[in-house]
Write a protein that binds this DNA or RNA. Structure first.
Length: 445
DNA sequence: TCTGGGGTCCTAGGACCC
DNA sequence: TCTGGGGTCCTAGGACCC
């Protein structure tokens, strides 16, 4: 039986090679925008250059992007703002609320430029994988430099390019390239004599796919560097870290296991959670929030062209407080998958009515669709027929306006106008690229 | 006062069927 | 005396990512 294991479903190669694509032999690049949100802000605020700058999460809660100057002051990623307030005051760090309309728009511009060079996989808002198999090994470095230059010239966003045989290795090349002065933002580790050294200077916890839990486990087992990890016994890795770890190990050895995906697969889940800017106690305000979440979830479904079959609604008190804690979740099943705004609002309201208990201070409400269908293949029902065409044009217009002007600009009357709990964005920059009135003006003379 | 908000993938184990 | 066994589907929970 053991000889079958190497080729059977247990083998990382077997389960990681569902198609021809993963037998790709050429180079792959990871292009990553440097300090992306801060860079977007600076693009329209030249006065912020050279200054320490941070961008905050929703509710102005934690720090999610830092300029290099802020990094060297010791401002940590993910720090709650109030914990680094002293540092911020002392060094006059500029603090900005996040402005996703701006970041999504800048992200599209960067991707457009990248697509001129190669097939791209959109990995995250600030990262793309590029298929460089059409380039000869000797051309890779110059090509990487050309990519970097054009993105910067055309969008004003600075990027780092890491090149190697596999996705995991290009991630590694990117990470090292970001720190290395000599690389100047482009590091090519494809068929490189320096690869072993790169692996040797990388902590295993800095690898893509190795988080805190695996890092601790590996350190305890005496595996400290990425190089140690490539030498670890394969069956042991498979047993301790599942097929996920086995794939990472193969990829580090230069064997592609993670195919490039040109077309994003349809979303399997669709969620929105929201922290309130302050505690909500009354039933009325919770219901108002429920209405609001219902309409937001619907807008998201319209945008993704998905209909919702099942969703969970939950509410939660502040987990950081010492006060009495309560949280509960209610699943909802729709007889026919829906993306109808009023139906979704009614469902969320129904759930919150049942979940709400007086006597608590609520901090968060969440709506998460756990099962979705593409809107054009909704299963009918013996009593109810799906009729997506009837969705009023009004809803589409509502979605568009909210997309351009920020969530909640237009809403159903039932959502209410009080909303003292609404997410805070107190230090937000203008919508430079998506709102006519916010376009930067240049004065001459 | 103040601690984000999205997502994906994998596995073990229970339910259920024959 | 005697509680089989294999297959599939589903879910909860863990691990990870940005």
């Amino acid at each position: 039986m053991h000889s079958v294991v190497a080729l059977g479903a247990d083998s990382p190669m077997e389960s990681a090679q569902p198609n021809r694509e993963s037998r790709r032999r050429g180079a792959v690049a990871l292009v990553d925008c440097n300090n992306f949100y801060v860079s977007c802000e600076r693009r329209f605020r030249p006065d912020l250059r050279k200054k320490p700058v941070v961008v905050l999460s929703n509710n102005d809660g934690i720090i999610i992007s830092r300029s290099n100057e802020a990094k060297s002051l010791g401002v940590k990623m993910g720090s709650p703002l109030f914990k680094v307030e002293d540092l911020i005051q002392k060094h006059k760090v500029v603090v900005i609320s996040s402005n996703y309309a701006l970041y999504f728009d800048m992200c599209d511009r960067v991707r457009e430029v990248l697509a001129q060079f190669a097939g791209i996989e959109k990995y995250s808002i600030d990262e793309c994988f590029l298929d460089l198999s059409h380039k000869k090994p000797g051309e890779l470095l110059d090509y990487g430099r050309a990519i970097k230059r054009r993105v910067e010239d055309w969008t004003g966003i600075s990027v780092t390019v890491g090149i190697s045989e596999t996705k995991c290795l290009s991630k590694l090349a990117n990470k090292i390239g970001k720190k290395s002065k000599r690389a100047k933002g482009v590091l090519n580790l494809y068929q490189s004599p320096h690869l072993e050294k790169a692996l040797a200077i990388t902590d295993v916890g800095d690898l893509w796919g190795v988080g805190e839990a695996y890092q601790n486990m590996l350190h305890a087992a005496g595996i400290h560097t990425a190089l140690d990890f490539t030498k670890a016994e394969e069956h042991w890795v498979r047993k301790k870290m599942t097929v996920v770890g086995a794939r990472i190990q193969m990829e580090l050895k230069g064997v592609p296991c993670l195919p490039l995906e040109w077309v994003a697969p349809p979303k399997k889940q669709l969620g929105i959670a929201q922290g309130f800017s302050l505690l909500v106690e009354s039933r009325e305000e919770m219901l108002e929030a429920a209405f609001f979440k219902g309409s937001e979830e619907a807008a998201k479904a319209h945008k993704e062209k998905l209909a919702i079959k099942e969703m969970n609604v939950w509410i939660q008190t502040n987990p950081f407080s010492d006060g009495p804690q309560y949280s509960d979740l209610l699943p909802i099943v729709f007889p026919v998958a829906t993306q109808d705004t009023s139906e979704l609002i009614r469902a969320v309201e129904w759930a919150v009515e049942r979940l709400y208990k007086p006597g608590f201070g609520y901090k968060r409400i969440g709506v998460w669709a756990t099962k979705v269908d593409p809107e054009n293949c909704v299963q009918g029902h013996i009593w109810v027929r799906p009729d997506m065409e009837k969705r009023p044009k009004l809803l589409k217009i509502m979605d568009r306006i909210n997309d351009e002007r920020g969530r909640g600009t237009l809403r159903m009357a039932s959502v209410g106008i009080n909303q003292r709990w609404l997410t805070k964005f107190e230090k937000q920059s203008p919508h430079y690229t998506t709102r006519w009135s916010d376009i930067p003006k240049a004065s001459i003379g």
